[in-house]
Structures are given as C-alpha cells and as structure tokens.
C-alpha cells in the first residue's frame, strides 16, 4: 500500500539521507528530519501528536547531552595521544624483552660450550642448568603474543572512538573543553617510569646535563 502524509514524507527524507550518507547518519541529519517533521504538524494537535512531540523532544535532549558528554571525553586526545602512547610503550616492552632474552640465550650457549672442558658429572649438571634457562626463555614468545593482543584491542577502541566522532560531528572536537593547563609538576608528576628508547636520554646526555649545572 502506498505511503501517505507524514509516513511518505519521512520515507522520502530517509531515502534521501541514505543516498547521501549511507547507513551511518550524522546526528545533525537526524535533527533536520525531526525539525522538518515538526514543522509539518499544523492545525489542531491531537493527544497522539503531543506524545510524539514529547518523545521527539526528549530524544533531541538525549542526543544533545550525549554530544556534550562525548565532547568532555575529548575523543581526539584519546585517538592522538593516549592510544599511540600506550601502543608505543607496549612495543617497547616487546623489544626490551626480546633483547634481554637473546642476551640470556647468548650466555647460556657460552656456558654450554664449556661442557666438553669439564668432567662428565659437572658437564651433565651444567647441561641441566642450561636446559632450564632455555625452557624459561619461553616467556618471551608468550609475552609478545599477549601484548600483540592488547595492541589489537587498543586499535579496535581507536576505531570505535573515530566512528563516534564521525557520527556526532567534528564540532564535538571543537567544542571540547580544552585539557586543563598543566600546573607546576609535583613530585608525583616526575614519576614517569622508563622512557621509550627513541626519547630516552642516555648516560652521556645525563652526565652533560649534570655538568651544565657546575
């Protein structure tokens, strides 16, 4: 049965939005439809119309407050700062454990090479020790795999944040409350943990810095 009146108008507007934006519809487009539909309500308003109006009004309020809350979360900061920093730190863990594991394996292999120089009983005991070292180095593979999983999850969160920003509009970035200005660092702020290799100062740089105070 062909649609009539408001139903037809709504169907045409939704079709036009789908053509233009696909299935991911910008919130402003929803607001435009609501506004246009309300403008078509003329003449006497029935109890049913009033209920519809109230529902639409509360929906509009909900969307408005959701946008405000999202803006407060500063999604752009999550995407450009928090997640990249977290993944860099995790990558650094993988690299550092790999380097350490290979150093341990180097040492174990050098120990094992001494076995022919020893009497058989001592050589056997040495072999038991190096076997335990090799077995224990399994941890590096598992650590790497677990961290890779966490990095994938972080990337999935990043994509969801991106989608939210697209749906609610770029203006939630512009309207976001700026991050509070940084006050003078406290003792606690100075506890940043190990630095990433790319940004860490080496001992020579530290020595030069210390010497600069002399």
């Amino acid at each position: 049965m062909p649609l009539k009146g408001v139903d037809r108008d709504l169907a045409l507007r939704l079709e036009a939005i789908r053509r233009e934006h696909g299935e991911t519809i910008h919130v402003d487009a929803v607001a435009d439809v609501v506004r246009a539909l309300l403008e078509t309500v003329t003449g006497d308003i029935s109890a049913g119309d009033l209920r519809l109006y109230q529902e639409l009004e509360s929906l509009a309020e909900y969307i408005h407050s959701a946008r405000a809350e999202l803006a407060e979360l500063r999604p752009n900061e999550i995407k450009t700062e928090f997640i990249p920093t977290a993944t860099d730190e995790l990558d650094a863990i993988v690299d550092a454990t790999e380097v350490a594991t290979n150093a341990i394996l180097d040492a174990a292999e050098r120990l094992e090479a001494l076995a022919p120089l020893l009497d058989s009983e001592v050589a056997d005991r040495l072999s038991e020790v190096t076997t335990t070292i090799y077995e224990s180095c399994n941890f590096q593979d598992l650590t790497g795999q677990r961290i890779t999983k966490v990095v994938k999850m972080l990337k999935a969160i990043e994509q969801r944040v991106d989608t939210l920003v697209k749906v609610f509009g770029a203006d939630i970035r512009e309207n976001a409350t700026p991050a509070p200005a940084k006050a003078a660092p406290t003792d606690e702020d100075l506890l940043n943990g190990p630095q990433l290799p790319a940004t860490a100062a080496d001992q020579d740089e530290i020595d030069r810095l210390l010497a600069s105070f002399d």
Partner: peptide
C-alpha cells in the same frame, strides 16, 4: 628467539 630455544 623461539626458533633458537627449540634448536638448543
């Protein structure tokens, strides 16, 4: 690293 462990 794992290849090295298994080889050893």
């Amino acid at each position: 690293t794992m290849l090295r462990i298994v080889r050893n």
